[in-house]
Write a protein that binds this DNA or RNA. Sequence first.
DNA 1: CTTCTTACA
DNA 2: TGTAAGCA
Length: 130
Amino acid sequence: MNRIEPEGRELYSIADLAKEFGISTRAIRFYEAKGLLSPERLGSTRVFRRRDRARLILILRGKRLGFSLRDISDYLGLYDADRAQQVHLLAEKVSERLDALERQRTDLETTISELREIKKLAEQRLEKAG
DNA sequence: CTTCTTACA
DNA sequence: TGTAAGCA
């Protein structure tokens, strides 16, 4: 449709990125609406550069690791700012995420234990009755 | 509430 | 493309 001249591989259309990363163009627009991406415009057409692509990769990776768009946004907000501050925020968010996962693991183990106990009791009752 | 998707004007 | 409604 609207092919953007690829000089090397500097420019990407929203469709290019959607296809490359297996997400919908709507999702990309959603990220833009949330301020996570801010591609240039050639008229009404979005033009993504390597910088935008790099940010999208970070967004996707952040999501994979379980971070909210808000967290990712906060982090990306420091993209052009203080490196030390960015690293500091990252360390903080990662710690929070690890704590959350540890808590989830504890909860999971508790649930698994309870279910095993219920299963054991149920099987014992079957033996008595059977 | 969050993150999208679907759908319509 | 903004919005609304609906999903998980």
